[in-house]
Design a protein around this nucleic acid. Structure first.
Lengths: 330, 330
DNA sequence: ATCTAAAATGAAAATATTTTCAACGGAATT
DNA sequence: AATTCCGTTGAAAATATTTTCATTTTAGAT
């Protein structure tokens, strides 16, 4: 069990702590000769700076807190990948905090995040975001909000324009005279659902119609598949739109199980293409949401905020691409 | 911008730092009266202990490093959920480090993990695990290895018994006289693949046969689906086994695309059931890997190691459940 | 009222780093 | 030869906590 501190390095190199610190942090006031001596001492002793002590001395931890719902939703897991990749480039570490619906108290997570003195917080915009934001603002911790359009002094946001996507989708169908468009509403009743609702409503308004095609999975029905299986028994639609990839697959199988053939009898559209939706048969249409990029951009924004670089765009909107019956495979 | 330290609390409550510290840490030597005074001061000032300073003073950070390949593989994302849930219970924070194949230098991650002074490391057993283990052992950082069977003074491990699963699967087919069993080998050529190979080989040996049914996705073929589409053009099997859920779906669609009907012409088996494989049609058989539990158990093991509790079983083997054409949906 | 033991509290050291300010040495200038 | 200046270096303070050890307070016993 070795435990090398900056003292040992200083002794080994016959210099003071200050000089070692300067070498570690790449200060250019150190003479080339001594710098080399210190570096040799560092490698000889296998010294690794203590990030905790650095954090205390600097009041800066090069650490961000990431607060997300379940990581097993494709959208989030890919965002995490993007986020972590960028974090690595800029040498930030990521504390991952997951929210388990109905179990986790978000307040506790915020408490923990404050305690751990992260430099910034990246958080998914859930329903009760407001309280969290307030708490973090009190401590003036820079934030990046994912999934909704908010900004202020210390807050940037990155979101996906589901509203426009659904608007254009509906509009194009309505132009063709297709009006029976059902949208599956997540039983979690989250933000994405409400964006989709807005987009649909607007498109229908444009055509002097009122939208009322939302299909709600009931709260106590934990299985979307089971729900849809009984739903399609006595419902038919021209178009059926699902948000998550797993819901689209469930819809696909529930519908075909009742002899509804896709896409002849019913068009099936998924708002989040994934490796799962893209290899399924019959093929379904889907939107390609840049979730990896979303994570990457969020983290990049965060680094800009933390380094006081100029953030030209505090609310970054990501477009999503519609690929009807996409045949690109991965 | 407020910045309350233990000093302010002490002043407010007319006590010394030591007493405040004792109250924070639930020491029972503090008089009920003063304890109350301190607690009032804490809430009044909105004081939150500084975990960094605590970490420095205690040489303990209540933090673990988690090192994993891509989080967008169901197996890992569910493991993360389990791990984070348990971490929360025991009040540990999790640093997430993802490995991007061919991009990330694992050495750098280990360096970072050491620098950040985590109390322990939970790491997925990839090919070049040995170097990492050595480095972490030098610093006597407790480790939990996921996915392989290793243990030593400071190392525990949790793994899934793919070998036995494949053995029993093959054995049961061989008993029925079915010998044409193909196993899709991940192009990453990872540990799971090698466990599966061992299981198959053993089963065939038991029946005095030699196993040579591995199907290798070539390294330069990034898309399993594309590969399988051309593969099934001129190959047929009685049984086809895939490891990951996405690979099983790809196989399903590639095969049916060539008129091979599942399961009449070919049995399709997936080693990792997920919400995706379980709602797909035609139904496929699959193994239920307890990946959430695997994460949860890993973290629980870690807490035991860190609290010097007795770890009765240093190598924990998780069984996997075979559910032929499972109809449970979620 | 006095003594003793136990309970409660505080002062100060320790944790590993950064940073400011002062000091030193040598080179250039006067 | 003295002075000035710049490039290097080191001493010490600062960061926010815990913990040890000593001291003070309190309660109980005599």
């Amino acid at each position: 069990m070795k435990k090398v501190t900056i003292y040992e390095v200083a002794k080994e190199a016959h210099v003071s702590l200050a000089t070692v610190s300067r070498v570690i942090n790449g200060s250019n006031v150190v003479k080339e000769d001594t710098k080399k001596r210190v570096e040799e001492a560092i490698t000889k002793l296998g010294y690794r700076p203590n990030a905790i002590a650095q954090g205390l001395a600097l009041s800066r931890t090069t650490t961000v807190g990431l607060i997300l719902p379940s990581t097993s939703v494709s959208f989030f897991s890919r965002a995490i990948n993007g986020l972590c990749d960028v974090a690595k480039i800029y040498e930030y570490n990521v504390f991952l905090h997951t929210i388990t619906e109905g179990v986790t108290d978000i307040k506790e997570i915020i408490d923990e995040v404050i305690k751990s003195r992260v430099d910034g917080v990246i958080i998914y915009a859930d329903k009760d975001l407001d309280d969290s934001v307030k708490l973090l603002e009190e401590y003036s911790i820079p934030m990046v909000v994912i999934g909704n359009k908010i900004s202020s002094d210390n807050i940037c946001s990155v979101y996906v324009d589901y509203e426009r996507a659904v608007f254009e989708l509906c509009d194009s169908y309505l132009e063709k005279g297709i009006t029976d468009i059902a949208i599956l509403q997540d039983y979690r009743n989250d933000l994405v659902s409400s964006f989709m609702r807005k987009g649909a409503e607007e498109a229908f308004r444009k055509h002097d119609l009122e939208y009322k095609g939302f299909v709600e999975v009931s709260r106590d029905n934990r299985s979307t598949y089971k729900f849809l299986k009984s739903y399609f028994k006595n419902h038919k639609h021209q178009v059926f739109v699902a948000n998550r990839d797993s819901q689209a697959l469930a819809a696909l199988n529930a519908a075909t199980g009742h002899g509804i053939s896709i896409p002849e009898d019913m068009e099936l559209v998924c708002m989040n293409e994934s490796k799962y939706t893209s290899s399924v048969r019959p093929e379904i249409s889907s939107f390609v949401v840049p979730s990896y990029d979303l994570g990457a951009i969020s983290m990049r924004l965060m680094t800009k905020m933390l380094k006081d670089e100029n953030v030209e765009e505090k609310e970054k909107c990501l477009d999503i691409l519609y690929s009807p019956k996409d045949t690109t495979r991965q």
